[in-house]
Nucleic acid binder design. Structure first.
Lengths: 168, 168
DNA sequence: CAATGCTTGTTATACTGTTACATATGAGAC
DNA sequence: GTCTCATATGTAACAGTATAACAAGCATTG
């Protein structure tokens, strides 16, 4: 499961996981963050996170608003507020390439460079932390003095499942 | 007629250039593309490209519509149409993280992995083609069978100029 | 000329995200 | 208890981004 090519020097840790995630784990991380900030983990936040975690795929804020169907129809702004909290908590990320949000149970380290691989067909997201990519970015940046800030990168492509099912 | 930058293999070729670009070069590439497609390189397309090339920074479609100031006020939809052509021609890229478009005179090879470094402060974009990043992505993808399609990645950070001028 | 194919002009609309303000709720201070 | 304060929620309006649909223009070609 874990490939570790281990190119010399600093430990290159390559970890990958798919879109099946542990809802309880991600929620407990959100709760911890709420406690650390002294703010409540409200039902609103819980609902949005639970929906994203259960879906396992990126959703737009308006999709979320529609599908958080505990009777009440949420307004987009409410969803955005919940998402803001969840992003701060590190439980949810935004995919700029799709203007969509998805839950993630991977606790990202401080300087870690995370790669989000987005399937163009089914929308599933896989994450991987790649030290090799991180080094490549640092190398590219060094020549111009650029300082990478949020090393979160998105790559479009085709997941294994969709590649195996060409014309659906 | 696409030139394909040769040095490949295991050798990591790192090429970088800033946001000063050659307006004539990028326009002639657009013209070549137009010829190859048998469509005209119209004044509309020329204006949008010229503005982007002269600015050297990413601009939103609506900004472009305002600033293409040859008397006529462009509608957004017209700008989007021009941008569509220019993106196909490879002269303009879209920055998903900012919903902005910028001109680029770098002819990207087929399987090349390009890194766009976006300064969070001034908005300037620097490009670099990194073979090391490409290898990292392939490695990360291989573990899950993911096939990267459009290896164009965006990294936010701080450019050397802005880093040297902390509070402007 | 007529037909075709592409570009442009115009209107409308959908999607994404934020501002502003009123109200509610919960925890501590008195 | 109740006052106060900070935060969360509800609501409306709006700003910004992007596309759809269709009419009209302008080439080139048969």
């Amino acid at each position: 499961m874990h490939r570790n090519p281990g190119p010399r020097g600093t430990c290159a840790h390559e970890e990958t996981h798919g879109h099946r995630l542990n809802g309880d784990a991600v929620e407990s991380r959100a709760r911890s963050y709420a406690v650390s900030k002294g703010v409540p983990f409200t039902p609103m936040r819980q609902s949005v996170l639970a929906l994203l975690a259960a879906s396992g795929k990126p959703m737009s804020a308006y999709e979320i608003a529609e599908k958080v169907s505990d009777a009440r129809k949420l307004k987009a702004v409410q969803v955005y507020r919940a998402l803001e909290f969840l992003q701060e908590a590190g439980c949810v990320h935004r995919l700029a390439s799709r203007s969509a949000y998805f839950a993630c149970d991977h606790l990202h380290g401080e300087g870690e460079t995370v790669v989000f691989m987005v399937c163009a067909q089914c929308g599933a997201v896989q994450e991987a932390a790649s030290e090799l990519v991180a080094r490549g970015l640092r190398g590219a940046a060094k020549t111009t003095g650029f300082r990478p800030r949020h090393p979160m990168i998105e790559v479009e492509g085709e997941c294994a499942e969709c590649a195996g099912t060409p014309e659906r």
